[in-house]
């Protein structure tokens, strides 16, 4: 379909642009990882060691910038992102691979739950505008969403982990056990993930409620909703298929964007709950000027946003027949 082809074309071009910018930025900054290593060891390294480090980090000044560029593109496509400074000598790819599933699982799930629940509440409160639900939930969650993440996280920890002792204080699983595929371990993960996920959901749900409520109210005034009433359809069917389905369309792109930012947006939560995700890794990378790691994470964030937007485009095409036509 031409619409999908056009979206894919746009996607490929933007990914290429992101890769290129990612290549250029560190090269127009002063210093290099070898020098950074030198500073870390307070200059107590020999010139030979520096040379060796430069080779290890792939800083080969004899190659032209174009050779470097194509080598970089090739390496990136093969999943070789270089060596991490912070976790020297572990490859950056391995570091990211360790943290990514935790972040995607925790923040991704929490974001999806917040969107689904928020959209449902927004739809219901617009449907019964001025009703009980509408009077309580939207204002309450909007006030809560003004609280900072970390403050609410600490509060939740204080109440549910320290005072009541229902949930663990942090990390993704019991440190005494190792990662394996068992129901017992899955239970541990869910138990550890509950408080951080709860914090994310209650701080972000207010926005979804508000946007859905607003588009829903506009949609409810449309003639096709009146027509659906005239047809004698059941209220549930009118709410979901005639009003809700049209009202959700403008919110999908916002949802996709927020899914894309899952990787970067979780730093505070991961710090408060000591969660082993990539947000935490990014913080460490920034502290130790680990450019290879930072660069990879930034690239990952960019690509995550692009993939999410692409997915939203496809979803919109599926839900809204009008977008499938030629522009």
């Amino acid at each position: 379909m031409s619409y999908i082809a056009r979206r894919l074309e746009f996607f490929v071009i933007t990914v290429w642009a992101a890769l290129t910018i990612n290549f250029i930025l560190p090269r127009i900054m002063p210093g290099n990882p070898g020098q950074a290593m030198l500073v870390r060891f307070h200059g107590r390294v020999s010139p030979q060691t520096i040379k060796a480090l430069e080779v290890a980090f792939g800083i080969n000044n004899n190659e032209s910038i174009f050779q470097q560029y194509f080598e970089y593109l090739g390496n990136t496509l093969r999943g070789d992102f270089g060596t991490s400074l912070t976790f020297f000598p572990a490859p950056v790819g391995d570091i990211v691979k360790q943290g990514l599933p935790w972040t995607l699982g925790l923040v991704g799930m929490a974001t999806i739950i917040a969107f689904a629940l928020g959209t449902l509440i927004g739809m219901l409160s617009a449907w019964r505008r001025g009703g009980f639900l509408d009077a309580i939930l939207p204002p309450a969650f909007i006030v809560i969403s003004a609280f900072p993440y970390f403050w609410l996280g600490l509060l939740v920890l204080l109440v549910f982990a320290i005072t009541l002792g229902w949930f663990p204080l942090g990390f993704a699983y019991d440190l005494s056990s190792s990662i394996n595929l068992s129901w017992d371990f899955a239970g541990q993960v869910a138990w550890h993930g509950f408080l951080p996920a709860l914090t994310i959901v209650i701080t972000s749900i207010g926005g979804w409620i508000l946007t859905m409520r607003n588009t829903m109210i506009t949609t409810l005034a449309e003639d096709y909703v009146k027509m659906a009433r005239a047809k004698g359809l059941s209220p549930v069917r009118i709410m979901f298929m005639y009003a809700g389905r049209n009202a959700i369309l403008p919110n999908l792109t916002g949802f996709a964007m927020s899914l894309g930012f899952v990787i970067s947006g979780a730093i505070l939560v991961e710090i408060v709950f000591n969660y082993p995700g990539v947000g935490f890794t990014l913080l460490q990378a920034v502290h130790s000027e680990d450019f290879a790691l930072m660069q990879t994470l930034f690239l990952l964030i960019t690509i995550a946003v692009l993939v999410a937007v692409l997915a939203a485009d496809f979803l919109t095409a599926w839900l809204d027949p009008r977008t499938r036509e030629q522009a």
Partner: peptide, 11 residues
């Protein structure tokens, strides 16, 4: 209704 464009569900 007056305008079928608006009275028919677009999706």
């Amino acid at each position: 209704m007056q305008s079928a464009m608006n009275a028919l569900n677009p999706v």
